[in-house]
């Protein structure tokens, strides 16, 4: 990938996003496999817990969110891996553009590829789990604000483990504890919405988590990538 020294930050951002999207569209199973995993995990729960609709309604937000966490984790693995293998990651870190922008673009592209389909499929799964009709809006909104946080925090873990051969299991150990606040506030927002109460408070907290990680995580990702490509 060629970078000219005088590219504006926006141009760099758009360039990296476009590149990553093109690559992803060439490997479509990378998009579909995590999505399929998400759907299968969710369908396993009624089989394990039983088909009573009251139980399913009660646990639906938790199931969908936990499955979303796991499938995000699964898809994160390839965020930097192929770039690390073919050396373009090092090129990127050596380029005169700030690492912050590059990393942000890569995470954004990754979220477009894996987070967005999740949000589109979620209402369908909510139907399968008999989710309360009042809480569909909350489900979509929490996924919309929450999954970018997962991508950003997860990218820190991926950046740390990209140089390790068996990084996959380690990644989940590093990253899952950090996902807990998002899980708590998202499921509680959905539960609150089911009771027809305002849930803007929880959304505001998730949004603050989003902006916090949006500003801080790229620095951590950049530092971690520098360690990993050492």
């Amino acid at each position: 990938m060629m970078f000219e020294a005088n590219l504006s930050y926006r141009a760099v951002f758009v360039l990296v996003v476009k590149r990553d999207l093109t690559i992803a569209l060439r490997h479509r199973d990378d998009i579909f496999n995590p999505l399929l995993f998400f759907i299968i995990v969710v369908t396993l729960f009624p089989l394990g817990v039983g088909p009573e609709s009251t139980t399913l309604t009660r646990i639906a937000p938790g199931i969908i969110w936990v499955a979303a966490l796991l499938s995000t984790l699964l898809s994160l693995d390839r965020l930097f891996k192929s770039d690390h293998m073919d050396g373009s990651l090092e090129q990127m870190l050596l380029s005169p553009q700030p690492v912050f922008i590059l990393v942000l673009a890569k995470v954004f592209a990754h979220w477009l590829i894996t987070g967005l389909p999740l949000i589109l499929v979620a209402p369908l799964l909510a139907v399968l789990l008999h989710m309360n009709e009042l809480s569909y809006g909350a489900l979509i909104l929490t996924l919309l604000i929450g999954t970018p946080v997962l991508s950003l925090l997860g990218a820190v873990g991926v950046a740390l483990t990209v140089g390790i051969k068996k990084g996959g299991v380690l990644l989940s150990l590093l990253v899952l504890p950090l996902f807990i606040p998002v899980l708590i506030f998202a499921t509680s927002a959905i539960d609150t919405a089911a009771m027809n109460l305002p849930y803007s408070g929880q959304l505001a907290i998730i949004a603050s988590l989003l902006f916090g990680s949006l500003t801080l995580a790229p620095f951590a990702i950049g530092a971690a990538l520098k360690v990993s490509t050492n």
Partner: peptide, 25 residues
């Protein structure tokens, strides 16, 4: 040395998260 640097980044991310996790829990 690499291990120390990587684990250091993780522990800094963790320590920022600890209060958030604690209050959310």
């Amino acid at each position: 040395n690499l291990a120390g640097k990587a684990a250091g980044i993780l522990s800094i991310v963790g320590v920022i998260n600890i209060p958030i996790i604690h209050y959310s829990v």
